[in-house]
Design a protein around this nucleic acid. Structure first.
Lengths: 254, 254
DNA sequence: CGCGATTTTGATCAATGTCAAAGGTGGTGG
DNA sequence: CCACCACCTTTGACATTGATCAAAATCGCG
């Protein structure tokens, strides 16, 4: 776990060339407006897996946009129980301070090595007031995330362990695939441990393991050395109780 | 369950006199700006307990602001399992269509008799583009709601039944109390059945009942005929694992 | 008073957690 | 290039929480 590498000269990464801009609220900006945002940037940052971007209970004033890699947002109880609230994929933004000067109620930690774009929160808020279209996109994105949260509440509250695992794997498969529409096939990289999966689904890593074995034996999915392969998409969707009609639209951007 | 009573003449309820405006995104508006919003209003609406405002799977184009009573947002699985995602209290807004022309992924239903302010969604979106401060407040409110969602994810994923019940009761007590700062005392109206509580917490109504008995026997809270009395606030907070420092700020508006 | 909805209690069961320990795997330094 | 180590996965035996099934008691309301 090394130190973050910081790129001071932010003009080295012009927003014009940003690989994920189309998936972010920045997509709304062009020309001078985009240039103004670019001037505001703290810069890009690269951190190794395991790094905390900010911690539960501490004040955070930076807004991050994930360029590459996976980040997770989680909450801890005092005795160490962990709930992973969200897995962030490239294009996702996080770190907005919704309540001024309040400590962050969750931790953001890099799951893999990660590359981020960093903006100063307070300046961004001022900027957004001048750019209602971008602000609207932020609000929409937040709304979409809440729909995903609802899906996860359903997972935790009312689904069996097997349904939860199926649902999460399918969700992640769809989300990863939607970011790279030109790639096809039934396999993706999934840089999570079984403990990550358990902490997102309210299960122990041990039980996740047993469920994964079941899904493998039934030839629905396999998960081996961070590769997720979907053997039977229809059966998986059925196991997950995943209503594609309703939920896929909300997985697109995020 | 009667029909909704609709008030056609929206000028009968000027926004100036709105009881909950201070708790909503409308708080940002004054003078002509507020008048413009008022002109847009469909009007106020009164519906009896049990009415669906909109249903999962159907398109909804109205944005509701709750003026009086309780509303719940829930998601159903095909076999009838229900997850209540949120209890809305006066001042809460819901019904925004975050994904254009997509079916609502959850149902909004009145828990009690309810009075609402109704705005046409598409016009509101256009209006918000002209009112960045109000739009910012909308985004902030959505962000705050997500923090609550995270709290609920922790409930469902990592807390025991007793902790969940304690946490929900404390949350609702605080939220109800914060809306009427001049009222004091250790008792509030809680118009939920034990089945509502179970469906919000991923428990059966039967188990909720047993947990409530435990909390009553330990002289922590009593819940009888829709009155919630907090006998021992400190013990309750301890049972709930509720970190007031961190979470109370996010309960204020919503 | 009577009916449907809700609460309450008891007995039993199943899903998932806990504890323990044995394999694997990948990465690092000698 | 190998050996070691930390971390992760896998499996088994057993414990526990909360679900399920059944039924009685109570409540609110017309």
């Amino acid at each position: 776990m090394g130190n973050p590498k910081h790129d001071g000269s932010s003009h080295m990464f012009p927003c014009e060339h940003c690989q994920v801009r189309g998936h972010t609220m920045c997509a709304a900006l062009h020309g001078d407006h985009l240039a103004a945002l670019e001037k505001m940037r703290v810069g890009n940052r690269t951190v190794p897996a395991g790094t905390d971007l900010f911690r539960q209970g501490e004040i955070n004033k930076e807004v991050f946009t994930l360029l590459e890699g996976w980040v997770m947002l989680y909450t801890l109880l005092e005795d160490g129980r962990r709930q992973i609230n969200e897995f962030c994929l490239p294009g996702a933004a996080f770190g907005f301070e919704v309540e001024r000067d309040s400590p962050a109620p969750y931790t953001a930690q890099a799951v893999t090595d990660v590359r981020l774009c960093v903006l100063p929160g307070p300046s961004l808020v001022e900027f957004l007031k001048q750019e209602p279209v971008m602000l609207l996109e932020l609000a929409r994105t937040c709304g979409r995330s809440r729909i995903l949260d609802f899906q996860h509440l359903m997972n935790l509250g009312r689904r069996t362990a097997r349904e939860r695992v199926a649902s999460l794997l399918l969700e992640l498969f769809v989300r990863v695939r939607m970011r790279s529409p030109d790639v096809h096939g039934d396999t993706i990289n999934l840089p999570l441990t079984q403990e990550h999966i358990g902490d997102a689904l309210g299960l122990t890593n041990i039980h996740v393991n047993r469920v994964l074995r079941g899904l493998r034996e039934d030839e629905i999915v396999t998960l081996k050395s961070h590769r997720l392969e979907i053997l039977d998409p229809d059966k998986l969707a059925e196991e997950a109780g995943f209503d594609s009609e309703v939920y896929v639209p909300y997985l697109t951007h995020q």
